[in-house]
C-alpha cells in the first residue's frame, strides 16, 4: 500500500477510466447531467441498472484475473504461468457449462450454483496441476500438465456446446469468449468475494517472494510451503471460478498485466499484487468499453479483444525469455 501512496498514477488512471466508461456506450450519458438531475429516465435507468454494474464488474474481474495471474506466476516460479494457460479458467468454464447443460440445478449439485461449480472446476485443475508437479518435482512438468488439462477442459466445453440446446449454446459460447453483457447488481454482489480474496493474497506477498527463490529456500526462511500452496490455490480458484462464472474467460490479462508491473515497477509481490489489481482493472474496463463501442450497438466479446492483444505479447515474452525456462 505504501507503493500506492508513492505512485498514485494507476489509481488516478482507474478513476478517470471509470468516469469515461460510465459515459461511453450505445447511449451516451453525461455524468454531469446525472449529478445535476438533468438526465432523462431512460438514461438514469441505463446508468443505474446496466452501465454502473457492468463497469464495477469489469473493474473487479479485471483486478481479480490479473492478481490470480501474478500469484500463480509466483507460486509456479514461472513468469509464463497463468490461470488461463494452465487450465484453471477452462476447468472453471467446463464445470460452469456442465452445470448448465446437464441441468445440475435440479440435482444435489444445485446448491453449488454456476459460481460454485466454476470454483470447484478451477480448484480441481489447480490441485491436479500442483499434485503432478509435486510427483515429478519440476515446474516445467507442472506447466505442461496445465497446458494438457487446458486442452482437455476446452474440449469438454466444446463437447457441451455440441450437446446443448440453442439457448444453452449461447451461454456455453459466452464462457469460452468472455463478456460483461449480462452484468447486474446480483453479479456485482457475488463478485465482491474477489476483492476479499485479493486482500488475503496481499497478506501473502512476503511468502510469495520467498517461494520465487525455490521450495528449499522458502523452507529455510521459515515458510510452510504446503499450507501456503493450499491457501494460494484456494484463493486463486475463488477468484477465477467466480470471475469465469460471471463473465466467462478473460484471456491473457492474467499473464500480461503482472509482467507490465514487473517491467515498470518491481517484482516484489507487495507491489505486483496491488499494481496488477489496478492495471488489470483499467485494461479490462477499457477493453470492455472498446468491445461495446467498436461495433455498436452489437458487442465484441471481451475475451476476443484480450486474446488478440495478449497473444502477440505472450509470444514476445517467450522470445524475451529465450532458453531460461527450460521447457
Amino acid at each position: 500500500m505504501r507503493w500506492l501512496m508513492k505512485s498514485p498514477v494507476l489509481l488516478i488512471t482507474l478513476m478517470l477510466s471509470t468516469a469515461l466508461m460510465l459515459c461511453v456506450g450505445a447511449t451516451e450519458i453525461l455524468l454531469l447531467d446525472l449529478l445535476t438531475g438533468h438526465a432523462d429516465v431512460v438514461s438514469q435507468t441505463i446508468f443505474w441498472e446496466i452501465r454502473l454494474p457492468r463497469v464495477l464488474l469489469s473493474i473487479i474481474v479485471g483486478a481479480g484475473v490479473s492478481v490470480a495471474g501474478a500469484v500463480i506466476q509466483g507460486l509456479f516460479r514461472n513468469p509464463l504461468a497463468d490461470p488461463a494457460l494452465i487450465g484453471v479458467s477452462s476447468g472453471a468454464a467446463l464445470f460452469a457449462a456442465g452445470y448448465m447443460v446437464l441441468d445440475l440445478h435440479t440435482t444435489a449439485f444445485g446448491l453449488l450454483g454456476v459460481s460454485g461449480s466454476a470454483f470447484v472446476g478451477g480448484l480441481l485443475i489447480s490441485w491436479l496441476v500442483l499434485e503432478i508437479g509435486k510427483r515429478s518435482g519440476t515446474v516445467s512438468s507442472m506447466l505442461l500438465a496445465g497446458i494438457a488439462f487446458n486442452s482437455i477442459a476446452i474440449a469438454g466445453v466444446g463437447l457441451f456446446s455440441y450437446l446443448s440446446s440453442d439457448l444453452e449454446l449461447r451461454s456455453v459460447t459466452f464462457w469460452a469468449l468472455g463478456s460483461f453483457n449480462g452484468a447486474d447488481w446480483t453479479g456485482v454482489s457475488i463478485a465482491l468475494i474477489i476483492p476479499a480474496a485479493i486482500v488475503l493474497l496481499m497478506r501473502e506477498s512476503r511468502n510469495l517472494n520467498a517461494v520465487t527463490l525455490g521450495d528449499k529456500e522458502a523452507y529455510y526462511l521459515g515458510i510452510d510451503i504446503t499450507r501456503l500452496r493450499q491457501r494460494i490455490v484456494v484463493l486463486t480458484a475463488v477468484i477465477v471460478g467466480v470471475g469465469v462464472a460471471l463473465t466467462g474467460i478473460v484471456a491473457f490479462v492474467g499473464l500480461v498485466v503482472p509482467h507490465l508491473i514487473r517491467l515498470t515497477s518491481s517484482s516484489n509481490h507487495s507491489v505486483v499484487i496491488p499494481g496488477s489489481a489496478l492495471l488489470g482493472a483499467i485494461l479490462v474496463l477499457l477493453a470492455d468499453g472498446v468491445g461495446r463501442s467498436i461495433i455498436s450497438p452489437a458487442e465484441l466479446p471481451i475475451g476476443i479483444l484480450t486474446a488478440l492483444l495478449g497473444g502477440p505479447f505472450f509470444v514476445y515474452l517467450i522470445m524475451r525469455q529465450k532458453g531460461k525456462l527450460g521447457i
Binding site: G74, R262, K324
Partner: peptide, 24 residues
Amino acid sequence: VLPQTATLDFPFSVEEVVLMGRIP
C-alpha cells in the same frame, strides 16, 4: 542455509533479493 542451486527468474532488484533473508 544456502542450498546448492538457486534459480530466480523474476527481475527482483539485488536489494529485494537480499531483503528476503529478513523474512523470518
